[in-house]
Structures are given as structure tokens and as C-alpha cells.
């Protein structure tokens, strides 16, 4: 009965290889690597929109009142869902941008990009998830990779930038 508080897990290799099979399928189906990037980002967004409810229900997380809290929550979510603990770094002086530094990205465990896919953002599902999840808690953000181990960088750096706070939609006939 109490399944929603039971942090059920699955073998991360099943997850990694399933994601790999998806990326291969997209590459076969779609015209360009750009299209693949877009699809992965969109799927990530759809996942993020749902996953944030799961996160709130499990961690009884409250609303965030500044971006530092948001960063902490994202860090906790990476731990809860991917079993990794990215560090938070490279805050912009204005405090509206930060990075999640990922040491080991489970998505890329068995991956090496061929030269034909050099502009592919293999893990594009992650920034998509961040965007979808934040939007549901009224934060419009943009998110992208600054560094990627798949391209020979020492670390995978996921950037998150705050854009604006979203308001509840006004009921029709009022303003």
C-alpha cells in the first residue's frame, strides 16, 4: 500500500542501456542530429514535469524562495533519482546562474560518440528534465551543458539559469 514512500530502485545498467537504445532509435528515425537533440530535450521536459510531483511527494519539499534552495533541491533530486551527487559550483555574481558538476553520468556509462555525432548532446534529456521540473514550481529556467565528459572534458557541467518567476494563471474574467 505504501509504495509512494518506498524508494524503489532498478539496476542502473537497465536504465543506461534503455536510454542508449532510445538514442539509437532516434538517430535511425530522424533526419539530423539536431532533431535528435530536440527530441531528447522534449522527452526530458515531459519526464521532469511528472518527476517533480514524485519528488515533492517523497521529500515533502516546500516552495523555494531563492535560487540557492532550488539548487539544493536539484542536487537532492539527482541523488534520489540517478544515485549521483553533483556538486553545485560556478555561481554567477548576480546569483541567477549556477552549475551542477557531474562526475559520473550514468547515462554515458558505456558511450563513446563517433565523429559523425560530434554535435550531438547525448544527455540532452537532463537539461530538459531540469527545465520541466522547475517550470512546474513556477520557475522559468534555461539549462544546457557547458562541459561534457563525452567530448573529452574533465567533468560534465550542467548550467542552470534563472529567467523569471511564473504566476498562477488568472481566472477568466478577472485581472
Amino acid at each position: 500500500m505504501n509504495r509512494s514512500v518506498d524508494p524503489k530502485k532498478v539496476n542502473s545498467e537497465l536504465f543506461t542501456l534503455t536510454y542508449g537504445a532510445l538514442v539509437v532509435q532516434l538517430l535511425n528515425d530522424l533526419e539530423s542530429v539536431e532533431d535528435v537533440n530536440k527530441h531528447l530535450d522534449r522527452m526530458g521536459y515531459n519526464i521532469g514535469v511528472r518527476l517533480v510531483e514524485d519528488f515533492i511527494a517523497r521529500s515533502s519539499a516546500d516552495k523555494c524562495y531563492d535560487l540557492r534552495e532550488t539548487a539544493d533541491k536539484l542536487q537532492a533530486a539527482f541523488r534520489m533519482y540517478l544515485g549521483i551527487s553533483p556538486s553545485i559550483a560556478n555561481w554567477a555574481p548576480a546569483g541567477d546562474e549556477f552549475s551542477l558538476m557531474i562526475d559520473t553520468n550514468p547515462l554515458t556509462e558505456f558511450v563513446e560518440l563517433p565523429d559523425t555525432c560530434s554535435n550531438m548532446r547525448y544527455s540532452a534529456i537532463l537539461p530538459g528534465m531540469v527545465r520541466g521540473a522547475c517550470e512546474m514550481v513556477h520557475l522559468e529556467v534555461s539549462s544546457w551543458f557547458v562541459q561534457d565528459q563525452l567530448r573529452g572534458d574533465p567533468v560534465t557541467e550542467l548550467r542552470v539559469k534563472f529567467i523569471k518567476r511564473l504566476e498562477d494563471s488568472v481566472p477568466p474574467g478577472e485581472d
Binding site: 505504501n2 509512494s4 511528472r50 514524485d54
Partner: peptide, 11 residues
């Protein structure tokens, strides 16, 4: 929310 909505709608 936690046991019905998240469980049977979100998932």
C-alpha cells in the same frame, strides 16, 4: 496527493 495522485496519475 502523495499516495493517490502521484501514484495513479503521475506514473
Amino acid at each position: 496527493y502523495t499516495q493517490v495522485y502521484v501514484e495513479y496519475v503521475i506514473r
